[in-house]
Design a protein around this nucleic acid. Structure first.
Lengths: 157, 157
DNA sequence: CTTGACTTTCCAACCATGGGAAGGTTGAGG
DNA sequence: CCTCAACCTTCCCATGGTTGGAAAGTCAAG
């Protein structure tokens, strides 16, 4: 149905956006922060995008969908454009990102775990007592080291 | 060693921070956004915190450690203070948050999966060919519906 | 009094994104 | 030719949670 009527290049930002799934706002933003080079302009000042530009935007969206940061995408784009790149560099970037994902997943899984545990012991009825609040209220296992009893200039003598 | 010299209340923001693990910056921020009531002040304008205040700040930090948003903590604090609360409300809040965690974990796990798959097929040597870039460059399975062939006002006639 | 560790407020940045205002451009249809 | 809607432009603001710094005031110890 949406047979995609094959847009003819170059296109305006709206078409570029629709063709790539990157919002016009974000396309401008990426240009502003230098992730993509400044677009060509019509005499009226409208940005115009070539097929290659659209290709690049799609690349960016896909990388974002995989959770790469803009910083990382900058690197990926550089490698993408460099036909003499070493695939090891790409792989390293990917693995760096995988490690980040792992860290975040681990962190959140731990939270989920603790929370699940607490919730499972909460009656969940109209009585007020609740292990969740009790834990938050006073020191579950996860507490942070205490320091500084009173300021060095404390009034202790 | 850090036998915590038992600070005497009320305390300054620095001591409150050290005693709770919430940075002074964030304590002021929480006050500003109304998560906590405005602290009492000395004549000089220094914020002072009672033992109860410190308790509340610890509560907040623990909730944050579990990944609750400030919005959610607002709710938790309300329930915490309400001795006639129904534990069901607390549980509901917790489960709402668990669901959010689940969603994010699922999302990131999926990313990790895809990425891992691609990375495993990348030689990672000095040759340039790399399935990671190839996938980003042209349509892995995750692509977004295309719309709008050309603007409605397109030059098609 | 000086020193330095504290405190205050204010302003800005991060990251990625969205919202909206005010104004210019385009092209189709009347 | 004029009007109207749908585009486009730039600009500023907001989100969420946190950190950073600057400029200035306070406080206690030496």
């Amino acid at each position: 149905m949406n047979e995609a009527v094959a847009l003819q290049f170059p296109v305006n930002i709206g078409d570029a956006s629709a063709a790539t799934g990157v919002s016009a706002k974000m396309i401008r933003h990426y240009e502003e922060i230098g992730l993509i080079p400044p677009a060509n302009r019509t005499q009226a000042g409208y940005r115009v995008y070539s097929e290659a530009d659209v290709h690049m935007l799609r690349f960016i969206r896909r990388a974002r969908n995989l959770g790469f940061s803009v910083k990382q995408i900058e690197g990926l784009l550089g490698l993408w454009r460099d036909r003499r790149r070493a695939s090891s560099k790409v792989k390293a970037l990917a693995q760096e990102h995988i490690a980040e994902l792992d860290a975040r997943i681990r962190e959140m899984t731990e939270m989920r775990h603790t929370l699940e545990h607490l919730a499972s012991r909460c009656h969940g009825d109209d009585r007020p007592d609740c292990p969740i609040l009790e834990d938050l209220s006073s020191g579950g296992p996860a507490d942070i080291a205490q320091a500084r009893g009173t300021n060095r200039r404390g009034r202790h003598s």
